[in-house]
């Protein structure tokens, strides 16, 4: 599903160049669950952003579902992303002015899906994530764990083939963290490909494979609980 070759990312500011990623070769198969680990500043989030196509690499190649992403134009990339990739962030990134229902519905609106179909699909995910009774509340009225459930619901409502999660439990206590990890585990078992950035060995233990980054390079890959 994902194949990167010599993926590099360099940040330039004034006259200093910071190498965030120094040539990443990574392969992720369909229905895999990969954890990316490493110390702060090693390039984990940068890698996730590149995989999620919300940032562009400085050099290298990125093939997504057989297509070379950097040969596509902006519009095609946007389409590829919104049809296939869902995001979950550490701090949830819900839109505060919109209700829970509206937050979850938003990506479907952007995909141009009809209203009746949107209704059906939003209902399906909120039932599944057990947040139906809170659908009319605003994000600030929910606890962190509940907010992250909403974020997950919003990420999967489009039925993406790839879910990218950036420290999804980072802002949660262990009980709520556990809940979110169970949901991700379930989704993976149903066939969804997941790439997750995490600091937590516990969370990483849910994945099938762990990639260790250090100074922008993969230093170690090991299989987990096969």
């Amino acid at each position: 599903m994902i194949e990167t070759k010599q993926l590099k990312k360099v940040f330039k500011s004034a006259d200093i160049e910071t190498v965030a990623l120094a040539g990443i070769d990574l392969k992720v198969e369909e229905a895999d669950f990969v954890s990316v680990m490493g110390p702060s500043g090693c390039g984990k989030t940068t890698l996730l952003n590149l995989l999620g196509m919300i940032d562009v690499a400085s050099s290298g190649s990125y093939r997504f579902m057989g297509k070379e992403v950097y040969n596509l134009n902006e519009k095609q990339i946007t389409r590829l992303r919104k049809e296939n990739i869902g995001f979950v962030f550490q701090n949830f990134n819900l839109i505060e002015e919109l209700s829970i229902w509206e937050n979850i519905e938003l990506p479907l609106i952007y995909q141009g899906i009809k209203k009746s179909e949107r209704k059906r699909r939003v209902r399906e995910v909120i039932d599944r994530l057990e947040i139906t009774h809170r659908k009319d509340l605003l994000p600030v009225q929910l606890s962190g764990g509940q907010q992250q459930r909403v974020a997950v619901a919003r990420a999967i409502v489009t039925r993406p083939r790839l879910l990218l999660a950036d420290e999804p439990t980072g802002n949660l206590d262990s009980m709520h963290g556990e809940e979110v990890m169970n949901i991700l585990d379930e989704l993976n078992k149903e066939g969804m490909t997941i790439v997750m950035v995490t600091h937590s060995h516990h969370d990483a233990s849910y994945s099938r494979r762990i990639v260790h980054l250090f100074d922008g390079q993969i230093i170690n890959e090991n299989l987990n609980r096969v």
């Binding site: 919300i54 946007t78 839109i95 938003l106 952007y110 995909q111 489009t158």
Partner: peptide, 16 residues
């Protein structure tokens, strides 16, 4: 700006 970014990540087009 953050909201705009979230909307973009969720697939909102520039025009929208």
């Amino acid at each position: 700006s953050k909201e705009i970014s979230i909307r973009k990540v969720l697939g909102g087009s520039e025009k929208q």
